[in-house]
Computed example of a mutant assay.
Amino acid sequence: MTQSNAPAVPASALPPLAPRALLRWRVVRRVMKALAPATIVEVGIGEGAMGARLATLADYRGVEPDPISCARAREVIEPLGGRVANGFLDDVDPGPAPDVICAFEVLEHIDDHRAALADWVAHLPSGAHLVLSVPAFAKRFGPSDVRSGHFRRYDPPMLRTLMEEEGLVGVEVIVYAWPLGYALEAVRNRRDERKLANTEYSITELTAASGRTGQPRSRVLGTAILIGTSPFMLLQRFAKGRGTGLVAIGRRP
């Protein structure tokens, strides 16, 4: 795979990320630099903060089923040369076959996750990679998962087996977000437990809103989050196997 001539964009021009997304991006960026894809397709892009970063690395196409999130994603990704469609993987704008298909914090929202994974793998050409992220460890399922519209969390062996059973090889699962993820999750669980007690939501509504929940809106706040999170981006590499999130990579033979 050969890196495309994606635009060079200063970090200050990109949409801000929430703390856990920053921790995830540190891992994903390392993975993408190792894979060096020319083309990236992302499924379930939310408001496009991660997609905007991916669009600076390669020719980028993304899809998002929630129309509100999709409209926001277009605003931040299309000026960088990426393309965004409202829908699912079959609705991706036509273009070269992807070197990488990504799905960040998507699989846990899907009841039949095996069928979704099989569909993503089917869209991969031979030699291309699937890169995904999910919340880690089933025993940590709590109010923040319920309010986010999650069906489950994943233990690393479970995720590896699921990906291998759908035909991927060379599967690697990286645990991230130690130690900050534990504190972030504790705060969210307390907050979301109260909110769930006072309002009824359907899992469809929760899933649709999940891409908009917790996204920092101002660059000042985004800068403060980046400064506060930066030390933990480094720390998470020193506690392999510990954390609150998983990033997984597999290749279609």
Rank of each mutant, 00 (worst) to 15 (best):
R140L: 15
A13N: 09
G211W: 13
L235R: 01
A6D: 04
T199L: 08
P10A: 07
F151G: 05
R74V: 09
K195V: 10
W178R: 05
A248Y: 01
G211C: 13
H109W: 03
D112S: 04
A209K: 12
A73D: 05
Y60C: 09
I174D: 06
L184H: 15
E172L: 07
P216N: 02
P19K: 13
G81M: 12
V92H: 10
P96N: 09
E42L: 15
L117E: 07
N189R: 09
A128N: 12
V76G: 14
A239G: 04
L221H: 08
E165T: 15
L14W: 07
S218K: 02
F104E: 11
V76C: 15
D111S: 14
A71L: 01
G170T: 00
P67G: 00
A115E: 05
D90N: 07
G211T: 08
P253L: 09
V121R: 07
G142Y: 14
V92W: 04
A36Y: 13
F88N: 05
S230R: 14
M233V: 04
R219I: 00
T161W: 08
V43A: 10
A55Q: 03
P67D: 00
Y154L: 06
R29G: 06
P253A: 15
V131E: 06
E105T: 06
E164N: 09
D119F: 11
T56I: 07
V41S: 04
P135N: 09
D145R: 00
T39D: 14
W25L: 09
R29I: 00
